[in-house]
């Protein structure tokens, strides 16, 4: 079974469980709404010129907060039911667990970003570009979220195995994701200002995404298990996930 298929099956398993109670999606969406209201109350009277500077900050700060909230919950089912060990014994590449969780986190965080962008456009005239240039806006949102979630998922996994000290996630996450967030801020500002370098910034953000995903997937197994002893996988023992 290919890595993509393994990752998809693991992500689907999480999504099916999430669809039963929508706990993570609802809390993340509500948190996004609360942050939006707070931004609206704080910055409603901001002059149009200053909005160009403030809106990228609002967008990516909100995503950083929502991302941290989602990442603290992403391994909760495994931790609460103590099933992480069971997941690790599944006959799949362990990096597929990373990609599966990354996919779910990305879906939730990007979904919240998709709520944020039009809402910011309605609240602040400078952010109307988000609606006027939806393709660039969506690309920017996805690329920024991939960088953030790629790092976050690795450390959320590590903390899930470290006796539940999830409070440390924010301590780790914000300094480590700051370069990705700065790249995203620069690109968002270029989008709002109609700067011609937007494509270059998006390309750089994509390169950063590739580097972070590669590094995180390389480190996932040693972080989660503490060693790199590969399980012996003979052909008959490998079974499809559906069985």
């Amino acid at each position: 079974m290919s890595l993509v298929r393994q990752s998809w099956l693991l992500a689907k398993n999480d999504l099916v469980q999430e669809l039963r109670d929508l706990e993570m999606v609802m809390t993340a969406a509500f948190f996004t709404l609360v942050v939006l209201v707070m931004f609206a109350l704080s910055f409603a009277a901001l002059p149009a010129a200053d909005q160009t500077l403030a809106v990228p900050g609002m967008l990516w700060l909100a995503i950083a907060f929502v991302g941290a909230l989602t990442l603290t919950r992403i391994f909760d089912r495994e931790r609460e039911a103590d099933t992480l060990r069971a997941v690790l014994t599944w006959p799949v590449d362990r990096v597929a667990i990373y990609f599966g969780k990354l996919g779910v986190t990305l879906l939730v965080v990007t979904g919240c970003g998709a709520l944020l962008m039009p809402a910011l456009a309605l609240l602040f005239p400078a952010a109307e570009v988000f609606l006027e240039r939806p393709l660039e806006s969506a690309t920017l949102l996805v690329l920024g979220c991939v960088a953030y979630c790629a790092v976050g998922t690795l450390f959320a996994a590590g903390l899930a195995t470290a006796s539940g000290k999830n409070v440390l996630l924010s301590v780790i996450l914000y300094p480590l994701t700051s370069p990705a967030l700065i790249f995203a801020l620069v690109a968002t500002r270029a989008l709002l200002e109609g700067h011609p370098a937007l494509t270059t910034y998006l390309g750089q953000l994509a390169a950063l995404d590739a580097m972070l995903v590669a590094l995180a997937s390389w480190l996932f197994e040693p972080v989660l298990l503490g060693n790199v002893v590969k399980p012996v996988r003979s052909a008959p023992r490998r079974r499809p996930m559906k069985e």
Partner: peptide
């Protein structure tokens, strides 16, 4: 960090070292 967080800290240090040029450029 709790038991096991030494591996997490090591991953953090790897990201930190890789981030040196990225942060500067960003």
């Amino acid at each position: 960090g709790a038991a096991g967080s030494e591996r997490l800290a090591a991953a953090l240090a790897v990201f930190g070292a890789v981030d040196v040029p990225v942060i500067y450029y960003a």
